[in-house]
Each structure stands twice: as structure tokens, then as C-alpha cells.
Design a protein around this nucleic acid. Structure first.
Lengths: 244, 244
DNA sequence: CGTGTGATTGACGCCTGTCAACGTCTGTGG
DNA sequence: CCACAGACGTTGACAGGCGTCAATCACACG
């Protein structure tokens, strides 16, 4: 209810989410900051709400800050040949995105697009760099974040190179479960188009549709439009060949 | 000649390569260290030579330090289903490897194997962590290194998900050119088995062999055992569809 | 000279991408 | 309220890329 009012009313700097609230709610990267560093970030941040479909930053563009997600869901993707998207990651409440190009001083290597209405806090790049340089613990946390992503990327490379589409789809469903959870009815708490699913798995939309039907026929999942219900996680794990 | 004698004679801490020499020779990550930090690293490092085939660290193992490559070449790979390797990266003189798991405090997510006889300097993990925490510039450099790798990994994901094997092979040949250079005769300065090539591209050995023959027939490359001569880089780029 | 590793080639077939047609749903405008 | 457009989902047909299996060759090494 609280958030609903924020989303519908917010214009620019109205109803700015307080970093303090976020710190209480989840394990934020900013927990390593000293009080004065906190107020600095709090003062410099600019918060906005974004509707589904909004592009936050675009591959190849120069960015001058990064974002902390207060609510909503974004997809992070690269655009390949003939414009097909490859979804690299998702970001949700508590995640930070767009910091990579700030730290490496490169152009954005991916795009970020809102898929569930979101509230984002923008923090200037210089603030990030200064924190990394002056606060060793924050720096370590940032590094761990990056290293974790790097480890995941490497796993994904191996999977996509070695597994079949069927195995990858099963794995993606399980990953989505870990990221977005299931509701009490075992339904994945994220709504993706078939095309988006295909763009995670790295295959054609039609292949995803056929395999989902197959999974449904095999009583592994149940389908109701974009609602995907996981019926047999054990067997999905077996199919995904996950020993990571 | 200097290095040859090192390789053949070195036992443990004999003939320790000096960090100072390395700093003069290439753009080391350690250039951001203060003199006293340098001597600390210099004192704590342990250098060894390794023959082709040596495993430096293994996926899933806990490591307690990282390596700076003084000479030689290593491959960094993950082991997938049924033991097939996926080569993630190469490391050569001046590169550092194995720092990821130190910083993220996880088990090694990949293995490192020597493919050209190498001299490696081992540096304890605590040294790295302490440097990251206390030296902002070093920390930034480390972060940039990680972020760069992350960007590359993301590109690779998109490629492997969207491009054909033929396109990827052309791209891999060009990447190898960038990493290892060509000699005056346009021959790639790295010797890989067909299987290793396949494990970079993410395909079967036979496919690599067939495609290499095809490239040769098309006058794109010339083959002489493991020596690969790039004849027409422009057309290879076109085939690889590289617009990265 | 036997053995083992790596390279090559051919045969075969399945997985998977592409193309096309059609169904479904939602929102918009007449 | 209906018609229509447009986005999304589904299904079928089809072909070709690519993986797998097997046999053979090349070469180094003990």
C-alpha cells in the first residue's frame, strides 16, 4: 500500500526512499558505509519511478552513475546480431546495476529495461569511485559483488556451450525460482514473455514454447499464460544436470 | 636465454623474478603500490616454474593466494558435464589469475593449467585483501580488472548464445591473434590442440577440424599442424560478424 | 616396433532454428 | 458495442547445422 502510493504519486524527488529503510530491509552493499558517508549518498542520490518498458541505460552509452533498486524488476541484456536480446541478468529490490562501466570507465556493455514498475535511486559515479577508493570495506564488498557476478557469468558460459536447450530451460526455471521465489502455490513470482525466456536460454521462442509444453505434458510444470507453476523441482534439477 | 636458464634450474625460491623487472616490462596491476607495499609483496611472494600440463589450481578447491604470471601461458577453464572443458580465458606474462575466489571468498570456480612452460609468482590471499582494503588506487585497478573480465564474459555469453559455430570459430581465431599476436609470417603465436580450440568455441573437436579445413579451402587461413596462419583477417572479421 | 595421443574423414541422424499460418487477448477507435 | 490492429502464443512443416560414432591416419615416445 505504501509503495503503491509512492509509485503513483512520485515525481522526481518527492517521496524519496530513505537509504535507512533499505538498510533495515535487506543486505545492502551500503551497509559498510560510515554514517557521514551514508548521508553523503543520501543527499546525492536522485530517486525516480519507472514504468514497465522504460530503458534505464542503453548498451554503448556513457553513463555517469549507477542505480540502486528500491522496488520493481529490471532485465539486463545485450543486443546481438539482428537485434536479438540476450538477457544476462535480472535486478530486483536491493540490487545495484550499472556500476560496472563506472568502475572500469568504459561504455555500458549492456542495457537495462524495466519489466516490473520500479523505483530506482541514481547515485553519481564520482560518489562510487570515491567510496571505493576511501572505504576499504565497501571496496571489498563491491569487489565481492563483481567477483560473484563473474563467477556466475563463467558458469553460464559453460552451460550455454555444453548443455542442450532442454537442459538450459530447466536450469533457467530453477534459477528464476531462486531469484524471484515461488508463491504459496508454487508459481514463479515473475512474469516473462516466451520471447524473454528464449532470450535467457539463448534459443528461439518456438523452441521454448515446445519445450514448456513438453515439460507440462511430463507433469514437471503447469502453465497458465505467463504463470509457470513448478510441480517437480527434483526432476527439473535432474534434467538441468545441475551440479554447480 | 635468461629465462631458459631459469626454467631449467629453478627450484622453489631460487632465481626469484624481481617485481621491479616486471614493473618495467609491462603494465602491471602492482604499479599502484607504494614502495613499502612493493617490498612486502616482494618478500611474501613465492615463485616457481611449471611444466606444460601442470595444474595450478583446481575448480572447487579452496585457494589461499593468487598468481602473477612471469612467463608462459595458462588456460583457465571450467569442467562441464561428462568432464568436457570449457576454456574461459588464457593468461600470459603480466596477467594475474586466481584472485577472484580470494576476493569473493568462494571456492575456485575454474581450473588453471599450464600450456606453455611457465614461471608463476604466488602471493598470499591476505596480502591481496589487505592491499585492496588499504590502497584505494590498487583497489580501483583490481576492480577495473574484474569489471573488464565481466564485460568480456557477458559478450561471450551473447556470442555463444547467438552465433553459429562457424562465426564463433572465426572470432576465436581473431581473439587469439589479439592475445598472442602473429609472428612475422602471420602465424598465431599459440599452439593449441584441436580439442582445445573446440573447448574455447564450445563445440565438438570434429566440427573445429571440418571448419578449419573449410577456412583453409577458402584461403582464409593456412594450416600446418597446430600452426595456424591467418591469411585474410578482413574476411575472418566479416564471418565472425564482429561489431563489438 | 608397439602404444597412445591427436588429427582427419565419412556416415548418420537428431536437435533446433526458420518460416508460415493461425489462434488468442487486449486496447483503441469508430 | 463491435471491428480492427498489434502483440503474443501456438503449432506444423522442413531443412540444415552440428554432435556422435566409428574407422583410419599421422606422429611421437618409450
Amino acid at each position: 500500500m505504501y509503495f503503491i502510493s509512492i509509485i503513483s504519486n512520485m515525481k522526481n524527488r518527492d517521496h524519496i526512499p530513505s537509504c535507512e529503510n533499505c538498510l533495515n530491509d535487506f543486505d545492502s552493499i551500503f551497509k559498510h558505509l560510515a554514517p557521514e558517508e551514508h548521508s553523503k549518498v543520501d543527499n546525492e542520490k536522485v530517486c525516480n519511478s519507472f514504468k514497465r518498458g522504460s530503458i534505464i541505460y542503453h548498451e554503448g552509452s556513457r553513463t555517469n552513475g549507477f542505480y540502486c533498486i528500491n522496488s520493481g524488476v529490471l532485465k539486463i541484456f545485450k543486443t546481438g546480431i539482428d537485434g536479438r536480446e540476450q538477457i544476462i541478468a535480472f535486478a530486483k529490490r536491493g540490487d545495484v546495476i550499472g556500476y560496472r562501466s563506472i568502475l572500469s570507465n568504459e561504455l555500458a556493455c549492456s542495457s537495462a529495461k524495466v519489466i516490473d514498475d520500479a523505483i530506482l535511486c541514481f547515485i553519481p559515479g564520482e560518489t562510487l569511485i570515491s567510496l571505493v577508493k576511501t572505504n576499504g570495506n565497501f571496496s571489498m564488498a563491491m569487489m565481492q559483488q563483481t567477483c560473484k557476478e563473474l563467477g556466475e557469468a563463467n558458469s553460464f558460459i559453460t552451460d550455454i556451450a555444453q548443455k542442450t536447450v532442454r537442459e538450459r530451460l530447466a536450469e533457467v526455471l530453477l534459477n528464476l525460482k531462486d531469484i524471484f521465489d515461488l508463491d504459496q502455490d508454487s508459481v514463479l513470482q515473475i512474469s516473462l514473455t516466451r520471447e524473454e525466456l528464449a532470450n535467457i536460454v539463448g534459443t528461439a521462442t518456438e523452441s521454448v514454447i515446445r519445450l514448456l509444453s513438453e515439460f507440462k505434458h511430463d507433469k514437471l510444470i503447469d502453465l497458465n499464460g505467463r504463470r509457470i507453476k513448478l510441480l517437480d523441482i527434483k526432476r527439473l534439477e535432474k534434467i538441468s544436470n545441475a551440479f554447480n
